[in-house]
C-alpha cells in the first residue's frame, strides 16, 4: 500500500513522479482541519463573549455565518490561496495537484470540495453520532456511508469521488535532499584499487544503487562495520578479485569499486547496453539463442 506513484507530464515534457499520499496522512490532515476550524471558532466565541463588546444578536449572526464558512468555503479558499494546501495539509506536508500536468484551476478546487459535504462531513458526523436504527434502511445507510469513506482506499490513486470529478490527486510534498556525489570522493591516495572490464561486467544498475546506499555513511558501530566487510568480501568473491585485501582497506575498496563500476555502467548505457541488474548476462544470452 505504501509508495504508490503517479506520473504527471508538465508542459515541459519531462515526466515527474509524485508520491501519492497515504490514507493515514489524508485522514490526519482532514482531522487537523476540522480541529483547527471548529476549535478556532470556539476560541473566537469564548474570547468575544468574555470581552462582551457584542450583543447576542450580533454574536448569533456571526455564529450562523461562521458555521457555514468553516465547512466548504474554508477548504476552497485555503486551497485557492495556498495552491492546493489547507492548513492541515500544510502541517502533514501533502497537497492537491491537477492530474493533467497543468495548473490547478479554481474549478477543480471548487468541484472537489463541494463533494466534501457528502463524502466526508455527512458520513463522519452520522457515524460518530452513533444514532442509527437497526432497521433495514438503517443498515443500508450505514453500509452506504462506510462505502463512501472507503472509496479512496479502493482505487489506484487513492482519489475520493470529488477528486475523480475534479481530476485532482493528493500527493506528498516532495522533499529536497542533495547528497554529495560519491564518485568524487576518492579515499585512496596513490595506490587505488583497479578493476578490469570482466570484473566490472558482473553487476548492474540495481546493485550499484544498493552499494550507493551502503556507502552513504561510514559504518559507526561494530555491527555496521561487520556488515560492510561482508559486502566487500562478497564482491571480492563474485568478481574474482585476486589481490590480497586487508580488513582496513575494505571501505576504500568499496569506494573505488563504486566509482569504476558507475563509470563503466554509465558508459555501457550510453552505448545502448543498459544493465538493469546482475542478470543482464542471462538476458543477453537468452536473446542470442
Amino acid at each position: 500500500m505504501i509508495g504508490r506513484k503517479a506520473e504527471l507530464l508538465p508542459p515541459e515534457g519531462v515526466p515527474i513522479a509524485f508520491e501519492i499520499s497515504s490514507a493515514g496522512s489524508r485522514l490526519g490532515a482532514q482531522l487537523l482541519d476540522i480541529l483547527i476550524t471548529f476549535g478556532g471558532m470556539f476560541l473566537l466565541f469564548v474570547v468575544l463573549i468574555w470581552m462582551g463588546v457584542f450583543d447576542w444578536g450580533l454574536l448569533a449572526t456571526l455564529f450562523f455565518l461562521l458555521t457555514f464558512l468553516i465547512r466548504i468555503p474554508y477548504y476552497i479558499f485555503a486551497e485557492l490561496v495556498w495552491n492546493g494546501r489547507t492548513i492541515g495539509k500544510r502541517i502533514v506536508k501533502i497537497r492537491v495537484v491537477s492530474d493533467n500536468g497543468g495548473r490547478l484551476t479554481p474549478h477543480q478546487i471548487v468541484a472537489r470540495n463541494l463533494m466534501k459535504e457528502v463524502e466526508v462531513f455527512l458520513p463522519i458526523a452520522t457515524l460518530l453520532s452513533g444514532q442509527f436504527d437497526t432497521s433495514l434502511t438503517g443498515w443500508m445507510l450505514f453500509f452506504w456511508m462506510v462505502g463512501i469513506l472507503l472509496v479512496p482506499l479502493l482505487n489506484k490513486h487513492r482519489q475520493r469521488l470529488g477528486d475523480m470529478i475534479a481530476g485532482t490527486l493528493v500527493v506528498d510534498q516532495p522533499q529536497l535532499v542533495l547528497m554529495p556525489d560519491l564518485s568524487t570522493r576518492s579515499a585512496t591516495k596513490g595506490n587505488g584499487f583497479v578493476f578490469d572490464t570482466g570484473q566490472l561486467g558482473v553487476y548492474g544498475r540495481y546493485e550499484l544503487q544498493v552499494l550507493e546506499e551502503i556507502l552513504r555513511s561510514r559504518p559507526q558501530s561494530l555491527e555496521q562495520t561487520k556488515r560492510m566487510q561482508e559486502v566487500a568480501r562478497t564482491i571480492v568473491r563474485k568478481i574474482g578479485y585476486q589481490q590480497r585485501l586487508l580488513p582496513n582497506d575494505y571501505w576504500n575498496f568499496l569506494n573505488d569499486f563504486y566509482r569504476q563500476q558507475r563509470e563503466f555502467l554509465e558508459n555501457r548505457h550510453l552505448f545502448g547496453d543498459t544493465r538493469e541488474n546482475k542478470f543482464h548476462d542471462v538476458k543477453a544470452a537468452g536473446k542470442e539463442t
Binding site: 547528497m179 560519491l182 544503487q209 550507493e212 546506499e213 552513504r216 558507475r262 554509465e266 548505457h269 550510453l270
Partner: peptide
C-alpha cells in the same frame, strides 16, 4: 539518461 547516481 546518463547518470546512475540515485540520490542525484
Amino acid at each position: 539518461s546518463i547518470s546512475m547516481d540515485k540520490s542525484l
